[in-house]
Design a protein around this nucleic acid. Structure first.
Lengths: 193, 193
DNA sequence: GTCTATAAGATGATAGAC
DNA sequence: GTCTATCATCTTATAGAC
């Protein structure tokens, strides 16, 4: 269907733009010019910009959740699950220096419509909850070790990855993120198990 | 002098706006309305928006450097210097939920004029360099302990603080940042010294 | 579904009066 | 220094023809 195709094209183009320039940094015109359509056509699928923004963030949240589920279902031990998790961030950055949509929108939070704010908050809550469970189990099984409690360590770990994406992008050095990821692993993974 | 006062008023108002809404999220009109002047007056002091943005980031970078120098000159040991460092981020967030200007602009990096980009890069380089020195000395003196090398640990530490400011602001919970800071301390500070 | 046309408002910026 | 007036341009958004 031509309709479904255009809709998908709008979504993927907008996704790329919002990951690199932010919600306030892209316009319907940017999308239209890139695809070769008119802005009115975009309004047909997404009447208001916040409709598009909400759809993008909701999709992203859903796909990220699927990725976490896939890690859960993997037979690997906690250390490898942790590596798979950090790899999600490294892969995103490797793709044209794109930011995690959550980190991007969270920084713009005070300028966003409420519907989008809720999705961003949900993404953080989902991820910290998942990470807390991973860290708790990893500790119990003796694969992981760290000071403090799993909840706070999960917050610190997620924050470090989001922050490192930002600094890596700014310094135009994706290895920056890889170094931070490696450092985070070294801090938590029990090597003499 | 009225001139100096207006200039300072513009800078402080713009600073507050850019910390909360980002470079692409504030306008000359926002500043003018808040101060009670016209946008043309702002153009008198800062002809182009990037002049204002550059001034704000350069000032911030300079003041942050001074704060780091003050920590250096303090008689405290490395663990307390580290606590003073993380306190800088906590204090910023405590002030009306404001972001670190570096983290804010770094996220918008792909939309910023080059002069500003250079200041942001410089801020990251300055801070990571200072932190690396602190961590190196703290290790040598036996106050601090961590896996890997000081350079990468410095990158991870800075990234975690910037990231935690973002998540804390989004969740509207400044204790989020405090928990992450505490966690970072617990990870590195040798308790039985 | 996609377009043209158009609107109302914001934005960064400048010229020139006071 | 600060203002009024004005600018070209962009932005989100809608109405209606095809």
């Amino acid at each position: 269907m031509a309709a479904e195709s255009t809709r998908q094209l709008i979504l993927s183009t907008a996704f790329s733009l919002i990951q690199s320039k932010g919600y306030n940094g892209f316009s319907y015109r940017d999308i239209a010019d890139e695809i070769g359509i008119k802005t009115a056509s975009i309004h047909y699928y997404f009447p208001k910009k916040c409709d598009l923004g909400r759809a993008l963030m909701a999709d992203y949240r859903s796909r990220f959740k699927d990725a976490l589920l896939a890690i859960d279902q993997d037979a690997d031990d906690s250390t490898n699950k942790l590596r798979q998790f950090t790899a999600l961030f490294i892969q995103t950055l490797a793709q044209e220096n794109r930011m995690c949509l959550c980190g991007m929108l969270a920084t713009e939070i005070s300028t966003l419509p409420v519907e989008i704010v809720e999705e961003v908050k949900g993404f953080i809550a989902d991820t910290e909850k998942w990470l807390t469970r991973l860290l708790t189990r990893g500790c119990q099984a003796g694969w992981l070790q760290f000071a403090g409690n799993p909840e706070d360590q999960a917050k610190a770990l997620f924050a470090a990855l989001e922050g490192a994406m930002i600094t890596a992008r700014t310094l135009n050095d994706r290895r920056h993120l890889e170094k931070v990821a490696k450092q985070l692993h070294a801090t938590m993974i029990v090597t003499n198990k």
